[in-house]
Amino acid sequence: MTNIFSSRDSREALELLSEQFAMQVRRKKEEPFFLALSGGETAQQMFRLWTERFSGRIDWDTIRFYWVDERCVPPQDSESNYGHAHELLFGPLNILPAHIHRIQGEEEPAAEAVRYAQEVREELPHRHGIPRFDAIILGAGSDGHTASIFPDSISLMADQNLFAVSAHPGSGQKRITMTGPLILNAAMLLLPILGKSKAHITPLLLGNAPERELLPAGYVISHARHISIYTDPGSHPLQPPLPDK
């Protein structure tokens, strides 16, 4: 089932996403909640929102943090997804280090993909023989990529390894990414598609044209059992205008 939520701006979209995420955390009560995070500007905006508005509304001690993908750089690097999360979220909320399971981007990529897959396999509950996250928060690039699966590496959507090595098609930078089967096994997928840079790709991702499955984000939307998508007027300019509050 696909739910699409159209908001007045990106902050309202992320507030709605966060409210739904918080509700799922409360449903598990004191049990560990396994969450996989993405990186990028939208994630950074979300982390700031969480520290400002949700610090006292979520039991952060129950959450176990993992990553959808990571650039192959040290954690102190300005491009590290973990580094941004540490600065904007983990530090301000005093998250216990034992609850943070980062991809070690400074290690040899292929070996680290294997190591991290084994850690996820050992720590998470399983469904259909595959680890199952309680929630995965994805992103979508202007080229239709999600996680670090790009259109030229769409085969990773069917890769039976939990994590694999990919490369950015422009820079060639290596990434470690979650693969399709693990993404699609999550209990809940949350996908914000925000900003004017996504305006040309959003109609294709949300439409029914068969070519959307050639885009990683479109493939996920097509195959997900349950996914919630959040848009704003910049990313989805053809959506009907919302009434004033």
Rank of each mutant, 00 (worst) to 15 (best):
L215W: 04
D152T: 04
H101I: 02
L206C: 05
A36C: 07
P92S: 08
Y82E: 11
T202S: 11
Q44Y: 02
L184V: 01
A199K: 13
L214Q: 15
F133W: 08
T179R: 07
L242E: 13
L214K: 13
R48G: 14
H99K: 09
T202R: 07
Q239I: 00
S148G: 07
L162I: 04
A111F: 02
L238W: 04
S153K: 12
A22M: 06
L156C: 14
E123I: 00
H200E: 14
D77R: 06
P131R: 10
S228I: 00
H200D: 14
F54I: 01
L14S: 13
E106P: 05
N161S: 13
P237Y: 08
Y66C: 05
M46Q: 03
R132G: 02
D134M: 00
H223A: 06
E106Y: 02
E15R: 14
L156Y: 13
A167N: 15
G56Q: 11
E123A: 04
A113E: 15
I154W: 08
Q76D: 10
G218P: 12
L194H: 09
S166E: 14
H223M: 10
A43T: 03
S10F: 13
T51Y: 02
D143P: 06
F33M: 07
H168K: 06
D159Q: 08
H236S: 11
H101R: 07
D232C: 05
P97C: 10
L214F: 04
E31F: 00
R53Y: 00
G234D: 11
A224F: 02
P243F: 02
S6P: 10
T2S: 14
A187M: 03
A36P: 08
A113S: 14
I183D: 04
H84Q: 10
N208K: 08
M23E: 15
A13S: 12
E112N: 10
A98L: 11
R57L: 10
S18G: 12
L206T: 01
P203G: 06
L204Q: 05
